[in-house]
């Protein structure tokens, strides 16, 4: 517990580093939001006036201090473009992205680890080769192409699912699930492909270890040997690659939200980039870093559970 706390403290500088980096990057930019908002016909006076109103003419460090102070209080600033609170925009979009990434993670982990485990037990067989082929294909196809195929076949041809759109769980829980299935599938396939590979090779290694033979020599069932003795040892590298996949999922969600017209952080980000709205972008970067760092922390904690050597050290 103490180590977790210490780790939490050490990630603060990392988060600060990345977030400050993006902040100063936006300051160093030669793009002037005021010009963009006012369009090409604005006079210099109008631009200066708007810059003053939006506080864009303040010294950089002052703006940085103000922004950072706001972040600590939970205030992510306002959208330069609409004047809306970024915190509000962010909180409205967050549930969509969280549902999607969790859905994608579930698809990826269940499908990927399941297939990888299955393939490892029958390594070298036709089934195993089939899993390898699937995973090779899944890693080579971009998620939005897979998503378009899914939309075409499952939503347009078969009409089993809605092609696009998001239903709030408060409006209809079933509708929410229904609207998330296809996007989660599209997002999760790539993750599943990578995890299947990792799970398969970790399990193959574990199944060849001496302790597996020992477990068999004790008269245990295959199930016990595979799921208890081998799987526990094969888990660490799989958990590590799951944590890599979370970063991948956050990026992938941007694309999938666009494809399925989901009003999540991805759509928010793309809009922000297209019309240049730095506070929104910084909020998303901050969120992504915090999530990735927390997941890494969670993974490190899981190592201590999975590997007694780490616990003792």
């Amino acid at each position: 517990m103490r180590t977790v706390f210490v780790r939490l403290l050490t990630i603060i500088p990392l988060v600060l580093l990345v977030v400050s980096g993006t902040f100063f990057l936006s300051l160093a930019s030669n793009v002037d939001p005021a010009e963009i908002i006012l369009g090409g016909n604005a006079t210099q006076e109008q631009i200066d006036q708007l810059r003053h109103e939006k506080g864009l003419d303040q010294p950089a460090l002052e703006r940085y201090g103000e922004w950072l102070g706001g972040v600590v209080r939970g205030d992510l600033g306002t959208s330069i473009y609409t004047g809306a609170s970024v915190t509000d925009l962010f909180m409205a979009a967050l549930p969509v992205t969280l549902s999607l990434t969790v859905g994608g993670l579930l698809v990826g982990v269940l499908l990927g680890v399941g297939l990888g485990l299955l393939a490892s037990v029958v390594a070298g067989s036709r089934l195993d080769r089939g899993v390898i082929l699937l995973s090779t294909v899944g890693q080579a196809a971009p998620s939005f192409f897979i998503g378009m195929l899914i939309i075409y076949f499952l939503a347009l041809k078969m009409a089993w699912f809605p092609a696009t759109g998001y239903v709030r769980p408060s409006a209809s829980f079933g509708g929410w699930l229904h609207s998330l299935i296809l996007p989660s599938l599209a997002l999760g396939v790539g993750v599943a492909a990578a995890l299947a590979r990792q799970a398969r090779s970790s399990m193959i290694i574990a199944l060849q270890q001496d302790y597996t033979r020992t477990a068999l020599s004790k008269g245990h069932s295959r199930r016990r040997v595979v799921f208890k003795h081998a799987a526990r040892n094969a888990a660490s590298p799989v958990v590590t690659s799951v944590s890599f996949q979370v970063a991948h999922l956050l990026g992938g969600a941007i694309v999938i939200e666009r494809l399925f017209a989901l009003p999540g952080l991805g759509s928010l980000t793309i809009d922000a980039v297209l019309r240049y709205d730095p506070n929104v972008i910084q909020a998303v970067v901050l969120f992504a870093v915090v999530v990735v760092v927390l997941v890494n922390l969670l993974v490190d904690v899981s190592y201590t559970w999975l590997n007694p050597k780490v616990r003792a050290a």
Partner: peptide
Amino acid sequence: MRLVDGVMSVPFLVLAIAVIAAVGR
């Protein structure tokens, strides 16, 4: 290496978007 860890902890698409936002499309 800490710096490298920092950069690698941001999903690359998010990072790319942040930079594109700053330096232009």
